[in-house]
Computed example of a mutant assay.
Amino acid sequence: MLTRHLTGGRLGAATAAAASALLFGVLSAPGAAADGASGGGGGGSCNPTTGVCGVGASTPASPGGGSSGGGSGGSGGGGTCSYQGTTVPCELPGYGYWDGEGCYDELENPQPPANAVIWYGHNPADGGAIYWQYCPYGGGPAGIVYFQAYLPTPPPGQPDQESPGQIAAEMMKNLKLYGVAIDSAPASGGTGLVGLPVWLWTRSNLQLPAVTATVGDVSVTMKAAIGHITWSLGDGSASFTCAHVNTAYQASDGATTAPACGRSAGYRAAGDYTVTATSVWGVTWTSNIGIDNPVPAIVDEPSRIRLTIDQAQALNTAPEE
């Protein structure tokens, strides 16, 4: 069974009555009866203050010989489905797709704000979504056949439809994040000296081009950028970040210029050291139906190089006698 949290439909009184008559005519279900939204035997009603209405209708009788359970769900785009032995269209234009449990479901577009009551405390980015549901066979609350509902997963019958959160999760699996390439002075593979400045930088791009994936009517655009890089010199000292990670060492900087990123005093002892740059990526996404995830998902990607540091040797420059 689908789990539904319900709120009244958004039809005005005249529209509700017309929609009820039209839709029950399409379904041609035995025993179905349409009622005006301003009241009547089916329980339809409108709130005169808010204008929110529910379309009321009685539950149709099951045809003889029909199944006692729900019928088959539709795959979208036409065809016929069934409900308790009665043939129904798999798609009802303007009202969505048959879910096999007595209702037609249509994704709300755009989605309500994240703080709307209809979310019932759920995070819109976690995968669920808000649907408009038309339940002519009494699938909704007593006397209401058209309403909004929060569904944690897409209902059956939707045409290859996934929620923005589900699409984003699949995109994250295929997102190619990387650790930046590290440039240094002294260079990896070369030799530096104790006490001389160590420069660190990268020429790697700090963000990826935005990518978009579309499934059915839902599109998700994902962006990824490096928020900062954490550097470690591999000598037991504290790691650090730099405001300028693209400033390269130039020959004119010599041995005394303080590096834009690195350590002015260099290493204190000779040895081989592993320098690590941990790229901290932030990934965000937005969708075309108003469900967004503006709080970055954080992904760490490390990269490493090896530096060799020697001790400078003192030279005996005393004149010969």
Rank of each mutant, 00 (worst) to 15 (best):
L107Q: 06
L107I: 15
L107Y: 03
E108D: 10
E108V: 15
E108N: 05
N109E: 02
N109S: 15
P110S: 06
P110E: 12
Q111W: 07
Q111I: 12
Q111N: 09
P112T: 13
P112V: 15
P112I: 15
P113W: 02
P113I: 03
P113S: 12
P113L: 05
P113N: 10
P113C: 02
P113Q: 09
A114R: 01
A114T: 03
A114Y: 02
N115Q: 14
A116M: 03
A116R: 01
A116W: 01
V117L: 13
V117F: 14
V117K: 08
I118K: 00
I118V: 15
I118A: 11
I118G: 02
I118Q: 07
W119F: 09
W119L: 13
W119T: 04
Y120K: 05
Y120G: 04
G121Y: 12
G121I: 14
G121W: 14
G121K: 06
H122E: 13
H122Y: 14
N123K: 05
N123I: 00
N123V: 04
N123G: 07
P124K: 00
P124N: 04
P124A: 11
P124T: 06
A125R: 03
A125W: 03
A125T: 06
A125E: 08
D126E: 14
D126Y: 06
D126C: 13
D126F: 09
D126L: 14
G127N: 09
G127Y: 07
G127L: 09
G128Y: 05
A129E: 08
A129Q: 07
A129I: 07
A129F: 04
I130E: 05
I130D: 04
I130C: 07
I130S: 07
Y131M: 05
W132M: 03
W132A: 03
W132K: 15
Q133V: 00
Q133K: 07
Q133C: 02
Y134P: 01
Y134K: 08
Y134W: 15
Y134D: 08
C135F: 09
C135K: 01
C135R: 01
C135S: 05
C135N: 01
C135M: 11
P136N: 14
Y137V: 04
Y137F: 11
G138R: 00
G138M: 05
G139R: 01
G139H: 02
G139L: 11
G140C: 06
G140Y: 08
G140D: 12
P141F: 01
P141K: 11
A142E: 14
A142F: 10
G143N: 12
G143C: 08
G143Q: 11
G143A: 11
G143F: 10
I144W: 07
I144L: 08
V145G: 10
V145A: 13
Y146N: 13
Y146H: 14
Y146V: 10
F147W: 08
F147I: 01
F147E: 08
